[in-house]
């Protein structure tokens, strides 16, 4: 019991150290990139004010923000504020960045989680079917579908779905996360889900072909293994073999892939949210990028780095649970 607890604490500490050092590296790199980029944060701030400003006033702001100080000093000023939990104020939304991320992430999380679950389950199931019928007709058809899906650009697919399901069939709304003209406290859960389905489905199509093809390949390898040959020699049928040996042995790579797809998922959500005008983190980051909102851009960058890193960490931890060979070494 004591050993298990010690192990968990140790894993937790190592993970935390890794995440913190990663975030530190990301903060340096993104800060450098913003510094050398042509974006002038002061100019963007003034534009956001919406009023003209005198050169003296502008000089005052520059002085107050410390724009003319050396970059290293500016970095440490930023970092100190960051550690205090102050991510700054968004130039385009005029609100603290932390609040915007928190609010937008709830929307994005619902979207990404649905897409993630959907692509994982469907991808895994289709991968199993393809693997079991390897070389036969169902495999050939599904494989082609997967190739087509993974080579079609997602924004185009999103537009196509909008055209078919929202414009022609009118099954789903054309965009946003809630109906237009309804106060946010009056929006029902069903309305939220209704707005979520199409973007989530589009987003899931991005990674599910990948997961299906990987699962298929792994299952083919397993089915060609010696232990499956022996299972066959002991009289186990195809589906018994899948249940007893197949699933067990392809679960680990599928999980890895599933948790490693967080990065893709985040990238995809930027696209999906823009196509469907969905107010999530993805559309916030593209707005911040296009309008030079430095505090929001940096905030989302750090947040997404953490998000992806946590995903990969979870995959690492799950290895130990699923694979006895790794668990044994850990002990």
């Amino acid at each position: 019991m004591k050993g298990t607890l010690g192990r968990i604490v140790r894993i937790f500490v190592t993970c935390s150290i890794k995440i913190i050092s990663l975030l530190f590296a990301v903060s340096i790199i993104s800060f450098v990139l913003v510094t050398v980029s042509p974006i002038d944060p002061v100019q963007q701030y003034i534009l956001g004010l919406g009023t003209a400003i005198s050169p003296e006033k502008r000089a005052q702001i520059e002085d107050y923000w410390g724009v003319n100080e050396p970059p290293v000093e500016r970095y440490f000023t930023w970092l100190t504020e960051l550690l205090r939990g102050n991510l700054g104020e968004s130039a385009i939304y005029r609100r603290p960045v932390a609040d915007i991320i928190g609010e937008r992430f709830v929307n994005s999380f619902a979207l990404m989680f649905c897409a993630w679950l959907f692509s994982g389950v469907i991808g895994f199931a289709l991968g199993c079917i393809m693997g079991m019928y390897r070389g036969k007709l169902p495999d050939k058809i599904l494989k082609k579908v997967c190739y087509i899906l993974s080579s079609v650009p997602m924004f185009w697919l999103g537009l196509l779905f909008l055209l078919i399901f929202a414009v022609w069939l009118r099954w789903f709304p054309i965009g946003f996360s809630s109906p237009v003209g309804v106060l946010s406290e009056n929006v029902t859960l069903w309305q939220k889900i209704h707005h979520l389905i199409l973007p989530a489905f589009t987003l899931s199509l991005m990674s599910f072909a990948n997961i299906a093809l990987h699962t298929r390949q792994k299952l083919v390898d397993v089915m060609n293994s010696e232990y499956v040959l022996f299972a066959k020699a002991r009289g186990e049928g195809q589906w018994t073999i899948l249940r007893r040996h197949g699933l067990r042995n392809i679960l680990l790579p599928a999980l890895t892939l599933q948790f490693a797809s967080f990065a893709e998922l985040f990238g995809g959500s930027v696209m999906a949210e823009n196509v469907f005008s969905y107010p999530g983190l993805g559309s916030a980051v593209s707005a911040a990028g296009l309008q030079g909102d430095v505090p929001l851009l940096l905030g989302v960058t750090l947040f997404s780095a953490m998000f992806v890193c946590v995903g990969n960490m979870i995959a690492n931890l799950l290895y130990g649970v699923v694979d006895p060979q790794i668990r044994e070494v850990g002990e």
Partner: peptide
């Protein structure tokens, strides 16, 4: 069978 490779490594 001939070797341990004929046993499912995860069972």
């Amino acid at each position: 069978p001939q070797s341990v490779a004929y046993l499912d490594p995860l069972m």
